[in-house]
Write a protein that binds this DNA or RNA. Structure first.
Lengths: 109, 109
DNA sequence: CTTGGCTATTCAGTCTTGCTATGTACCAGT
DNA sequence: ACTGGTACATAGCAAGACTGAATAGCCAAG
């Protein structure tokens, strides 16, 4: 993926991960795999783990260590009340941006 | 505006400015004023000028100095061929992101 | 049993970008 | 002279994504 995507992900990747977690609990490796599936082909694993550490420290998620069948134990993250609130604010911010950009895009035609 | 918006603007603000310039030529002060009008209440002037310097150095815009009736001369920017190409790529990247996020948003319901 | 491969997490160092704060300069009205 | 609006510029900071590598457990093939 290109530089544009890298920069655009700043701020949105966090929302994307929170949105994923609002549907179901998940652990880092799983989230990374899911994102790759969705076409975010070049999101580095390190990026996701760093992001998960951040949202954990901000208290947006609860964490549970779960043993894995294969490999080291998983850190399973789930969105808590504060995280849900933060996610809602994310959607509001996102909506504002998309509206402005949609206007700009149409204005060009 | 909040921290979320600040982070989300990284990568999109550049596209926004290029989109503005694709409609008509404009200078920094004008762009800043327009953005404030559109609700981007806290975008700093310095941010826009720094961004304009960057896109000029990357050769995405042409520049012309035009004397102003009041105040110092204006640096009027207009999108060139390379800039248009870059803007199109921006729209593609943006579309990709919005599609994924729209899916996530609906998936939650 | 040893190598390679998949699962799973972590971290140091770098780059880009937006914000803060400040400074420069020009002109008009009071 | 002073204030305020116009117009541009820049140094230093903070945040987040990337690179690249290290660590570690488990299993199957050779």
């Amino acid at each position: 993926m290109g530089k544009q995507m890298t920069e655009m992900l700043k701020g949105t990747l966090e929302g994307i991960v929170l949105a994923i977690l609002s549907g179901r609990s998940a652990y880092g490796y799983e989230i990374t795999a899911w994102l790759r599936d969705q076409g975010f082909s070049d999101i580095a694993e390190g990026t996701i783990y760093a992001l998960l550490v951040r949202i954990e420290q901000r208290g947006l998620v609860d964490v549970e260590k779960v043993p894995s069948e294969k490999g080291p134990p998983r850190k399973v993250f789930s969105l808590n009340a504060q995280g849900r609130e933060y996610l809602e604010e994310f959607w509001r911010t996102w909506s504002f941006l998309t509206e402005r950009l949609e206007q700009l895009r149409e204005g060009d035609k």
